[in-house]
Structure formats: structure tokens, C-alpha cells
């Protein structure tokens, strides 16, 4: 497993009032900051995905509150915050037939770059081609402490 993979928390949530707030309240009490967040949902349930600076601690705390939490590996790639920035990365994946499961992105305030988090069907192959094509991969330590 490459050290360049970022630990993401995937949390099972029912799609109903207050569930999201309830989850984030628990994290707030730990004084842990959320770096990035995305939600995938259906009408009944969804997956809350979070990047935090101490994933193991948050997982343990959420599990104490009966949440189902898994740690999933994702890749963080820096892209220029301009039209077509993301396309460059997607073209690399497309060229090498690497399937994308999902992605979400956020803009970094200090450098004005954007960061995209990628979940690929084959993470190892994906990492290999992104490296070969000189994509700017951000190691987990940096992501957790942005």
C-alpha cells in the first residue's frame, strides 16, 4: 500500500433529518477539523466521506456512538484552479484506462490551487500512471494539516 494514499473516512448515514449534524457534532467535540467532505446519497441512505487530520481517532469516537465507519484509501492531486485544470488529470486516467469511482474537489485558500480527491477502481495502477505523467500528488501529511 503506497504511503501516498490518503485515509478517508466513509460513514454510513440514513438520509433523514439531523443525521449529518449529529455526526459533525461528535467530531466538533473532539476539536478535530474537517479538511474536505462529500456526500453520496440515495433517497434513503448515503455515504458521508471526510478527510480529517486524525482519522483513527474520529473513527473510534464515531464507532462508540454506533456509527458504521470504514477507512478508505483515496489519492489527493493538486490541480491549477483554472478552466481545464481537472480535465488534465481525467485525461491521464482515461488514456490509461483507469476507472474512476468518484471524486470531489476543494480549493485551497493559501495557494489558490485546487485539490481533487480521487477514488479509483485500481488505486495502485492509478498512482503509477499519475506519477509517470507528473501529476502533483499531495502526500497525506500535507492534506491532513492544510
Amino acid at each position: 500500500m503506497s504511503e501516498l494514499f490518503v485515509d478517508q473516512l466513509s460513514i454510513f448515514l440514513e438520509n433523514k433529518e439531523g443525521r449529518m449534524l449529529n455526526t459533525l457534532d461528535i467530531i466538533e467535540k473532539l476539536s478535530i477539523n474537517i479538511r474536505a467532505l462529500s456526500i453520496a446519497d440515495t433517497s434513503e441512505f448515503g455515504i458521508l466521506r471526510l478527510i480529517v487530520d486524525n482519522p483513527v481517532k474520529v473513527k473510534e469516537e464515531l464507532e462508540k456512538h454506533d456509527f458504521i465507519v470504514k477507512i478508505t484509501k483515496v489519492l489527493a492531486v493538486s490541480i491549477s484552479d483554472e478552466p481545464g485544470g481537472l480535465n488534465k488529470i481525467l485525461r491521464i486516467l482515461d488514456k490509461h484506462d483507469i476507472n474512476l469511482e468518484y471524486l470531489y474537489a476543494f480549493v485551497e485558500q493559501t495557494t489558490y490551487d485546487a485539490i481533487v480527491l480521487l477514488k479509483l477502481e485500481n488505486m495502485d495502477d492509478g498512482l503509477k500512471v499519475l506519477k509517470e505523467e507528473d501529476a502533483d500528488i499531495i502526500p497525506p501529511e500535507e492534506i491532513y494539516t492544510i
Partner: peptide, 15 residues
Amino acid sequence: EASPEIFFDNIKELV
């Protein structure tokens, strides 16, 4: 009730 054994980080698999 969902359980860790049947939870995946993937909507398609959950569905």
C-alpha cells in the same frame, strides 16, 4: 440495520 460487514464505500454496492 446495516452492519460493517455489509457497508461499502460505494453507493452501487450498497444498493
